[in-house]
Simulated assay, not measured.
Amino acid sequence: MEEEKILENITKSITEKLKVPIILTYVCVLVIHNWDILFYLFFESSTASSKIKYVKDNYSELYYERIFDCLIIAVILIVLFTILNTTINFCLKWFYRKDKEISSQIESYEQVSFLREQLSKSLEEIKKLKSEVESLNNINESLKSKNLDINVDEISRKDFNSILLYISSQPNKDKLLFSFKEFINAFKKGGDVEREELYKSATYEHEMKLLVDYFARTNFLKIDYRFNNITKKNGYLIDLSKSIKDILLMDI
Rank of each mutant, 00 (worst) to 15 (best):
E2R: 15
E3D: 10
E4H: 15
E4T: 15
E4G: 15
I6W: 03
L7G: 09
N9T: 12
N9P: 05
I10A: 04
S13R: 09
E16T: 12
I23C: 03
L24S: 09
L24P: 10
T25C: 06
V27S: 15
V27Q: 14
C28P: 00
V29P: 02
H33R: 11
N34V: 00
W35P: 10
D36L: 08
S45F: 08
S46Q: 06
T47M: 02
K51E: 03
K53Y: 05
K53A: 13
K56C: 06
E61G: 15
L62I: 11
Y64E: 05
C70H: 04
L71A: 03
A74L: 02
F81M: 14
I83E: 03
T87W: 05
T87D: 09
L92W: 07
F95Q: 09
R97M: 11
R97H: 12
I102M: 06
S103P: 01
S104I: 15
Y109F: 14
E110R: 04
Q111T: 07
Q111P: 01
V112A: 15
F114T: 09
L115Q: 01
R116I: 10
L119R: 15
L119P: 10
S120N: 12
K121Y: 06
S122G: 12
I126K: 11
K128W: 10
V133A: 12
V133I: 15
L136Q: 08
E141I: 15
E141M: 15
S142G: 13
L148N: 14
D149N: 13
I150H: 06
E154V: 07
E154G: 00
I155K: 05
S156P: 04
S156I: 07
S156M: 02
R157I: 09
R157H: 05
K158S: 12
K158Y: 07
N161W: 04
L165P: 07
I167D: 02
S168G: 08
K173P: 10
D174V: 14
K175L: 12
F178I: 14
E182W: 01
F183C: 00
N185E: 08
N185V: 03
K188N: 02
K188P: 02
G190Y: 01
G191T: 00
V193R: 02
E194S: 10
R195K: 14
R195E: 12
E197M: 07
E197Y: 05
Y199C: 12
Y199W: 09
K200T: 14
S201Y: 07
A202W: 11
Y204N: 08
H206R: 11
E207K: 03
D213H: 11
D213M: 10
F215V: 00
R217M: 11
R217C: 07
T218D: 02
F220D: 08
F220T: 00
K222W: 04
K222F: 03
D224E: 09
D224V: 12
R226L: 04
K232C: 14
K232I: 11
K233Y: 01
D239P: 01
D239S: 03
K242F: 14
L249T: 13
